[in-house]
């Protein structure tokens, strides 16, 4: 048997040994110290992005970054595009409507096409769980998962962790309530794994129809009543409820959902007085979150999440291309 004891603190590693992954596909692949390394690197970019009017750092100059989005996205695509451009990469966006990429050979063929264009890093979003890993298998360059089905959205979890760390100082003992449509949420799956790995106490709060079975295995304690789930929480992370799930399929109506699971000011008062409010966006105001809470100047970290998104993606793009760029210790 190989030695599988996991060190509690960051081991004394440098260079590629710090992050020995070719792709970033799932939080499940990462060790706690690898997550912390990504956060530390992103912290540097967050400061640089805030401090300088001219944000260019051209370490990826001459490299081609393809953002292949097989599912609609505005903010994630924009965030990856800005991150790539700030690092000096030539960023190309490919939008493939769901209709044009229904057949799998087409998906593999698309991957081969992207590969043949000599991309240096590919960012992929796809509506099907596991699709990004399937493509990653077929290409020669690093692949970043920008969301695959209900499975994973690792950069979202990392940017959420960075936001929490900046606001709360750390994770140990922190109570984080992830509330809403946990069943269909890749954001929730990535966040549960990430926050549990970092030492937080994670709660999954959802109506039974939107709670995945055996969610405990992802490191979260399930709650079906919002008020119980919010009790004493340091962070309240709301999830988006998709329109098509609102009308009787999983919940009776948006207004009933808002009554039972919407984050209102009154409900937020059940959490700790300084509890942080987060949402991956885009929000359904008046459904899962009320505007007063979403726009709360001290409590809401929603715009900061967007800001940290760029920093996290810069860190990921930088780290994953270090080997190809021949950075010392990474080649």
């Amino acid at each position: 048997m190989p030695d599988i004891t996991v060190p509690s603190a960051s081991p004394d590693l440098t260079g590629r040994a710090l992050f020995p992954h070719r792709h970033l596909l799932s939080i499940a692949d990462l060790k706690p110290w690898e997550i912390r390394f990504l956060l530390d690197e992103a912290e540097h970019w967050a400061r640089a992005n805030r401090g300088n009017a001219r944000k260019h750092d051209d370490r990826l100059a001459g490299m081609t970054q393809i953002n292949a989005f097989f599912e609609n996205s505005t903010r994630t695509l924009l965030s990856f595009e800005i991150a790539g451009k700030r690092l000096g990469a030539d960023v190309v966006n490919m939008h493939a409507g769901q209709s044009s990429v229904k057949k799998g050979e087409t998906l593999i063929d698309t991957a081969m096409t992207l590969n043949a264009m000599a991309a240096d890093v590919i960012v992929i979003r796809h509506a099907s769980s596991g699709a990004v890993a399937l493509i990653a298998d077929k290409v020669d360059c690093p692949v970043l998962n920008a969301g695959d089905g209900w499975h994973q959205h690792p950069t979202q979890a990392l940017l959420d962790a960075l936001t929490i760390r900046r606001r709360k100082g750390g994770f140990e003992g922190l109570i984080v309530a992830i509330c809403g449509d946990v069943l269909h949420s890749r954001v929730a799956r990535s966040n549960m794994l990430c926050l549990a790995a970092l030492g937080a106490q994670v709660r999954a709060v959802a109506p039974p129809t939107l709670m995945p079975p055996e969610v405990e295995m992802l490191g979260a304690t399930p709650f079906h009543r919002m008020d119980e789930g919010l009790e004493g929480a340091d962070v309240v992370m709301m999830l988006r409820l998709q329109n098509e799930r609102m009308d009787g399929a999983f919940i009776p109506s948006p207004r009933e959902y808002h009554m039972l699971y919407g984050l209102t000011q009154e409900r937020l008062a059940i959490a700790k007085p300084d509890a942080l409010v987060m949402h991956p966006g885009p929000m359904n105001r008046g459904v899962e979150i009320s505007s007063v809470v979403a726009d709360h100047p001290e409590r809401s970290a929603i715009t900061e999440q967007v800001e940290m998104g760029v920093a996290i993606r810069m860190a990921c793009l930088d780290i994953l291309t270090r080997q190809a760029r021949g950075v010392e210790g990474w080649a």
Binding site: S129, W150, R189, P212, M217
Partner: peptide, 12 residues
């Protein structure tokens, strides 16, 4: 339905 489906995010 079970741990594997939940981990992989598969309809179950």
């Amino acid at each position: 339905s079970g741990e594997t489906a939940t981990r992989l995010g598969l309809p179950h």
